[in-house]
Design a protein around this nucleic acid. Structure first.
Length: 424
RNA sequence: GUGGGCGUGGCUCAGUUGGUUAGAGCACCGGGUUGUGGCCCCGGAGGUCGGGGGUUCAAGUCCCCUCGCUCACCCCA
């Protein structure tokens, strides 16, 4: 049996790459419009970085990380998300002294050892961004507006759900209230919720069991337990979204899987991807920079899954066609092959997308290739033409042909062909 | 980690109650046009029927094991 890719690892084949490039192009453009700069960070980090940022008791850290010991005995992890690495870099290089507020984005692979399914892979790719150094509610709204614009310009309609998780000042109190409420339903919940009642009580709220949800109807809401600062912040974020005309809904049951989130959290939801409904998600993480040994600066960011975006684009019939070439050189006979070979390569140096058949196949076969390659023109050179110093230029869409002079100088010929074709 | 579905040429699939050289469409290559594409016609190449074991005179078809893919739970992008 031949070697196959690892489970959950996928090749992105040429016809699929087209749509990926479109996604990245649009996202980059919008990031730049919002004043973001790209940062590239390593895929491997010390395991400790993720344990400290994502949280020891999270699923990601507990059972999903690709962690191994390197040849020096150090514990290394393939990044399961992007924020930790970007913040590590931010702190390590003291980026905060360059300007008070930093806007950064990055694009790359993430790794989580989960059971693969639709929209979920072990190596997946994210577009992600972070803003460090400001806790203004208007920034939260702006970041969500940016995510919204990316999806809009991709032609996707997706709903925005947001919530506030409070801060270290008010969340613990809410947790207690919630635990007390759940105590009242002890023994009546699903297995998972019974377990999480103690370990991660906030989690129970987005349980999918109808029975549990029925019980949670009267559960206390985090939004009623926010401290004054968090409450004001939340109101201001909503106003910001209203001002910017971004449609959203508040989901007080929304919880995030990473421990570092504070205050604003949000998800970009679709109903077209089966179980993996989140196309993007993010939120504020005001204590994280300090926690990683940096200055006490607030931050906010989000990530979007490229595979999920690509899936949605394909479902909505937005498959991008492979771009055609400019000119296909069809040569017959050895001398013509020689001329065609140098001509084709010279055309490429002039900026044209040019192709020819190196196998010496029949003209019919070469014309077929020209058609399949999407060429706008075909230049037919046979030894007959060569003797007369001519070639036949065929317009592949109109099927019109004309005889053109093949100048002695291949470079000059290439230049005039390039000019002619580019002017069309 | 737990369930369900599925594994036949590159892709999508047919394969009757187990029975002779395993088929089709698409894609690929060649020919029909001594030098011309997208349609049509003809031909060709391409398969250890996921793998192993078993039952049988005979297994793609039945049984067991195993591997892989996939969807869902869980979790999340």
């Amino acid at each position: 049996m031949s070697v196959k890719a690892l489970k959950g690892f996928k090749d992105i084949l040429p016809d699929e790459v087209e749509i990926w490039q479109r996604i990245e192009r649009i996202a980059r453009d919008i990031f730049h419009r919002f004043g973001f700069s790209e940062i590239k960070v390593p895929i491997l980090e010390k395991t400790d970085l993720f344990v400290r940022s994502i949280g020891e008791a999270t699923d990601i850290v507990e059972k999903e990380m690709y962690t191994f010991t390197d040849r020096n005995g150090a514990s290394i992890t393939m990044r399961p998300e992007g924020t930790a690495s970007v913040l590590r870099s931010f702190v390590e290089h003291g980026l905060h002294v360059r300007q008070p507020v930093q806007r950064l984005y990055t694009i790359g692979p993430m790794f989580r050892h989960e059971r693969p399914q639709k929209g979920r892979l072990r190596q997946f790719h994210q577009l992600s961004c972070e803003v460090l150094g400001s806790d203004l509610p208007r920034l939260d709204a702006e970041v969500m507006a940016m995510a919204w614009l990316i999806l809009k310009e991709l032609g996707l309609s997706i709903s925005l759900e947001m919530n506030s998780l409070g801060c270290p000042a008010c969340r613990p109190a809410f947790k207690k209230t919630l635990i007390a409420f759940l105590q009242g339903h002890a023994g009546q919940l699903c297995e998972d919720c019974e377990r999480r009642r103690e370990t991660n009580p906030l989690r129970v709220l987005d349980c999918k069991s109808a029975n549990c949800q029925e019980k949670y109807k009267n559960a206390p809401s985090i939004l009623d337990h926010l401290c004054e600062g968090c409450g004001d912040h939340f109101q201001a974020v909503k106003q910001g979204l209203d001002v910017l005309n971004i449609p959203y809904s508040v989901n007080s049951f929304m919880v995030r899987g990473l421990d570092y989130y504070t205050r604003t959290t949000f998800e970009l939801i679709t109903d077209a991807l089966g179980a993996q409904s989140a196309v993007g998600a993010g939120g504020r993480y005001d204590g994280l920079v300090k926690q990683l040994g940096g200055p006490d600066l607030p931050g906010i960011g989000f990530g979007m899954g490229i595979e999920r975006l690509a899936l949605l684009l394909r479902q909505s019939g937005q498959e991008a066609a492979l771009p055609g070439i400019d000119l296909f050189v069809a040569a017959l006979g050895e001398a013509a092959q020689e001329t065609g070979y140098t001509l084709t390569n010279t055309l490429r140096t002039k900026g044209l997308k040019a192709a020819m058949d190196l196998e010496g196949r029949s003209l019919k076969s070469q014309m077929k290739q020209a058609g399949k390659s999407g060429a706008r023109f075909a230049l037919i050179i046979g030894d007959d033409e060569l003797a007369k110093g001519e070639g036949v230029l065929r317009d592949m869409t109109t099927r019109e042909q004309e005889t053109i002079a093949l100048k002695q100088d291949t470079a000059a010929l290439a230049a005039s062909l390039a000019e002619r074709i580019q002017s069309q």
